[in-house]
């Protein structure tokens, strides 16, 4: 499927305080077309794992009528960036939209933003 990221009001509201649960909850949501949920055999509120190359992340699913089938929309933040490749094709800008990812149902919990940072070698504050 094609992953697109973008800004949302809840993400913007909590952008000055990213350690908050609200921020992590918003940026770990994935909006999919209801048709795609059926195909994946999952429902609103279930979890999926999206992978790109050797990186993956677990997200909570929301059904979104506005999302075109075959794509998923994830609010811009640490969760989506966990799988976004760093290549910029000589422009300085990575592909934050239009990334080809694998999607599968998942049972693992959604990791907090601090968990993700620690995975990358950081330390929670």
């Amino acid at each position: 499927m094609i992953l697109n990221t973008g800004r949302t009001i809840p993400q913007g509201n909590s952008v000055e305080y990213k350690p908050s649960p609200e921020y992590g909850a918003e940026t770990s949501r994935a909006f999919l077309a209801p048709l795609d949920l059926m195909d994946l055999g999952i429902e609103d509120g279930d979890r999926i794992r999206i992978s790109c190359g050797d990186r993956s992340v677990v997200l909570t699913v929301s059904a979104g009528d506005h999302v075109p089938p075959g794509t998923l929309f994830v609010p811009y933040g640490a969760h989506a960036n966990h799988v976004v490749p760093a290549a910029t094709h000589g422009t300085g800008m990575p592909d934050f939209k239009g990334i080809s990812v694998d999607v599968e149902p998942a049972t693992d919990p959604v990791r907090s933003v601090w968990d993700l940072m620690e995975d990358l070698g950081g330390r929670r504050y």
Partner: peptide, 17 residues
């Protein structure tokens, strides 16, 4: 700004070193 939140993981990793 907050590059750890907004950059791809591969770029963020280098910040740890």
């Amino acid at each position: 700004s907050d590059p750890a939140a907004h950059f791809p993981a591969e770029a963020v990793e280098h910040l740890a070193s």
